[in-house]
């Protein structure tokens, strides 16, 4: 057997955990930007834009993230586009997260009560003004709990970046296990670290859901 768990292993795991957080942040920002565009496209007055964005969502939601990951890491070099593990993982997660966040946020925008849209129109606001000044500020409040909840999914899904050799938490566990041969112990520790990252977000999401968004919390505090 290859020795016992020591401080170096924990430093390595910590580094992996930091990369998991970093990759999650990249996926959230990238997926958030693309997802926001998708959400706006899904409610566009232009039918072609609506159909294209709906098609994107259907395609991505019908494909496993793992296959998207393999497609970008092994598929792109095969057709002459070299790509690093970090770039492949970031691109795959962005594409994947955008489809889900886009759909969540579309629901939130559409759940802003109808009279708000009509009132904004009655005040002769342009479409852009209506979106930016009336609808989105209210939609953001509705969107906060499910978005925080989805961040848990993002963190968990970054574990799939390990299959393209990107050294995040799950991969650093595999590497340590290759020298220790204590798979159950190592993966238990990995699971605990993931839990420590995800559980606070799950709790926060549920708390926000009960209190109806961050704005409401501030009001209650005041």
């Amino acid at each position: 057997m290859g020795g016992s768990l020591n401080a170096n292993h924990f430093m390595f795991l910590l580094q992996g955990a930091l990369w998991t957080v970093g990759l999650s942040a990249i996926a959230l920002v990238g997926g958030g930007i693309v997802g926001f565009i998708i959400a706006l496209c899904r409610i566009s007055p232009n039918a072609i834009v609506r159909i294209m964005s709906a098609g994107y969502v259907q395609l991505i939601q019908g494909t496993p993230l793992l296959v998207i990951m393999f497609l970008s890491y092994f598929g792109l070099p095969a057709i002459g586009i070299p790509i690093s593990p970090l770039a492949a993982a970031s691109a795959s997660l962005t594409i994947y997260v955008a489809a889900y966040l886009g759909e969540i946020w579309r629901g939130c925008i559409e759940s802003v009560p109808r009279p708000q849209w009509e009132a904004a129109e009655g005040l002769a606001l342009s479409r852009t003004q209506r979106m930016a000044k009336v609808i989105l500020p209210q939609a953001i409040r509705i969107a906060t709990p499910p978005t925080v909840g989805f961040m848990v999914q993002i963190i968990k899904n970054t574990s799939l970046a390990s299959v393209v050799g990107f050294v995040e938490l799950a991969r650093s566990g595999q590497i340590i296990n290759n020298s220790l041969f204590e798979p159950f112990l190592v993966y238990s520790i990995i699971a605990v670290v993931y839990f420590a990252l995800c559980y606070p977000l799950s709790r926060l999401s549920r708390r926000l859901e009960r209190h109806g968004g961050p704005g409401r919390l501030e009001l209650e505090a005041a």
């Binding site: 799939l160 993966y187 993931y194 839990f195």
Partner: peptide
């Protein structure tokens, strides 16, 4: 619900 399927 708070750990990845891969690790499970």
């Amino acid at each position: 619900r708070n750990t990845p399927l891969l690790v499970q």
